[in-house]
Amino acid sequence: MSIQHFRVALIPFFAAFCLPVFAHPETLVKVKDAEDQLGARVGYIELDLNSGKILESFRPEERFPMMSTFKVLLCGAVLSRVDAGQEQLGRRIHYSQNDLVEYSPVTEKHLTDGMTVRELCSAAITMSDNTAANLLLTTIGGPKELTAFLHNMGDHVTRLDRWEPELNEAIPNDERDTTMPAAMATTLRKLLTGELLTLASRQQLIDWMEADKVAGPLLRSALPAGWFIADKSGAGERGSRGIIAALGPDGKPSRIVVIYTTGSQATMDERNRQIAEIGASLIKHW
Rank of each mutant, 00 (worst) to 15 (best):
H24T: 08
V29E: 03
I229F: 04
A222G: 11
Y44A: 02
R159D: 00
E87D: 12
S68F: 15
L120N: 15
H285W: 02
S221Q: 08
P224M: 01
A225W: 15
G142N: 04
L282W: 04
R202F: 03
E277T: 08
A225D: 13
I243G: 08
C75Y: 01
N272S: 01
A40Y: 08
T198L: 11
P60L: 07
G76T: 04
L47V: 13
E26S: 14
E164D: 10
R159W: 01
E270T: 07
L120F: 00
E210I: 07
A211R: 06
R255W: 09
E46F: 11
L199W: 10
G39C: 14
V31P: 11
G251P: 08
L55F: 08
C75Q: 14
T69F: 02
A276W: 08
P249Q: 09
A40R: 08
A123S: 15
P253Q: 06
R202H: 10
K190Y: 15
L74G: 04
R91L: 06
T261I: 13
S221D: 15
P165F: 09
A34P: 01
V258R: 05
S201E: 12
L111Q: 01
T147Y: 05
R81E: 05
G263N: 14
S221P: 07
V29N: 08
S80N: 11
L188M: 07
A266S: 05
L47R: 02
S68W: 02
N173V: 07
T178V: 10
T27P: 03
L74H: 14
A40E: 08
D33P: 08
I259W: 12
V31S: 05
N272Y: 00
A211Q: 06
I259D: 01
P105I: 14
T138K: 14
R162I: 14
L191N: 08
T131Y: 08
H151Q: 05
R81V: 05
I244K: 07
R271A: 06
E56C: 12
L218K: 01
I283Q: 10
L136C: 08
T187W: 01
R176E: 10
T138L: 03
N50G: 11
L247P: 10
C121N: 01
L135C: 12
S221V: 10
T27W: 00
T198F: 14
K232Q: 14
L282C: 06
D36V: 03
G194F: 11
T186A: 10
L55G: 11
E270P: 09
G52C: 04
A185N: 05
P165G: 06
A200I: 15
G226M: 01
A222L: 12
D33W: 00
H156M: 07
S233P: 07
T116C: 02
W208K: 03
E270M: 15
Y260P: 01
W227F: 11
A34Y: 10
A225R: 08
S128D: 15
L192N: 12
A245Y: 10
G90C: 01
V31D: 05
G263L: 15
L55V: 12
L247N: 14
I206G: 13
R162C: 12
T147F: 07
S281E: 12
V42R: 04
P25H: 08
A77T: 00
E108L: 00
Q97I: 11
L192R: 13
L100G: 10
Q37C: 15
A84F: 07
A200G: 14
D36G: 05
N173T: 10
L38D: 00
R63I: 06
R162E: 09
R92Y: 12
V214E: 14
I93Q: 02
I171W: 06
G90R: 04
L49T: 06
E270L: 10
L38A: 02
E175C: 13
E270A: 14
D113P: 00
K53Q: 09
A185V: 04
G142A: 12
G76C: 02
F70M: 01
A215D: 13
T139M: 02
N173S: 10
G263E: 14
G251K: 09
R118S: 14
